[in-house]
Computed example of a mutant assay.
Amino acid sequence: MEDALFKRMLGALGVGGPSVDTVLNDPHTHPGGPITGRVDLTGGSHDSSLEHVTLSLVTRVETAEGDVTGEFHRVTVSGPLHLAAGQELSIPFHFEVPWEAPVTAVHGRPLHGMVMGVRTEVSVDQAVDKGDLDPIQVEPLPVQHRILDALQQLGFAFQTADLEHGHIAGSPQTLPFYQEIEFRSAPQYAHAFASIELTFVTTPHAAEVILEFDGSHDTVHRYTVHHSSADTTDWPGQVDAWLQQAVHHRRHSGHHGSYGGHDDHDGGGMGGVLLGAAGGFAAGYVAEEVVEELFEEEED
């Protein structure tokens, strides 16, 4: 009786509880793409009652208060179950990442400043959450690839990328943050602007392309491109035309105004339209040191 009570007390403290290991079939995916694998559970020294097994996507976002590591997409892969002492159990899973998921790698090379992982949460005996965290890489969709490649072909040099907490008004954005990919200006455009920041807001059918020049919220040009156009468009020529429009507008406006545009083009800068405290991210704040350590290892 005392031994059983002691084991239950240790279990409440997380001692002798089950172990968790998440195995991904492939750590590479793309916006709207799948993540598949299994969660391997091994019972500890005593029986355990598991309330749920949940997977979430975790990343780092820049907020007004500083960088925050938190979850932005959550999927339950198992409800309550009983795990006997020493029992081994595998739970397969399959879920799709959001279409707006930020790009974290291009051509297999991680983007400096970007980190993302799949976090596994197992709620055990109403007390301790056992966890696991596995890094993943999100490669661009074809149309995103073409635009990124076109910028490099035109002579723009990638500098860094980050996630900004907020919302771009007028966009189909649903996540509480957006990605900015920064490039140093190509030599032929250096006289007009020193840098550009590229943002994709992606849906199943199209991607809104937002170009911000010299970090000024007042100089923003917006375009909508359809996924079906990935292989039917001269992307270096198209991107060059966008940039020529920006230079022309800056030259003739005499100030850093935003391009009015027409058809696919949506005018209006991001200045003054970023909504603070977009819901859903801060509430998913993850404080475990293991998250920070894993992200630091990924960046190294």
Rank of each mutant, 00 (worst) to 15 (best):
M1R: 14
L5F: 09
F6M: 11
K7Q: 11
G11S: 12
G16S: 03
G16F: 06
V20N: 04
V20Q: 04
D21G: 09
V23I: 15
T29I: 02
G32L: 05
I35Y: 08
G37Y: 01
H46C: 00
D47N: 02
S49Q: 10
T54I: 02
R60V: 00
E62L: 15
E62Q: 14
E62I: 06
T63L: 03
G70A: 15
E71D: 09
V77N: 11
G79Q: 01
P80K: 12
L81M: 14
A84S: 10
A85H: 09
E88S: 09
P92L: 11
P98S: 08
G108N: 07
P110R: 13
L111R: 06
G113M: 02
V118M: 10
V122D: 06
D125G: 08
D125M: 04
Q126W: 15
K130M: 14
K130N: 09
D132S: 11
Q137C: 05
A150C: 11
F156N: 03
F156K: 04
Q159C: 08
D162L: 04
H167M: 03
S171L: 10
Y178H: 00
Y178D: 04
E182F: 01
E182C: 02
R184F: 01
A186V: 05
A192Q: 09
F200H: 00
V201I: 15
T203D: 05
I210K: 01
E212W: 01
D214Y: 03
D214A: 03
G215F: 05
S216L: 15
S216R: 13
H217Q: 14
H221F: 15
H221S: 15
Y223L: 10
H226T: 09
D231L: 02
T233L: 10
D234Q: 12
D234N: 15
P236N: 12
L243P: 01
R250T: 08
R251H: 13
G257S: 14
G260A: 14
D263M: 10
D264L: 07
D266S: 14
G269T: 02
M270A: 12
G272A: 04
V273N: 08
A277L: 04
A278N: 07
G279C: 07
F281Q: 08
G284F: 06
A287M: 07
E289M: 08
V290T: 14
E292W: 03
E293C: 05
F295N: 02
D300H: 15
D300F: 09
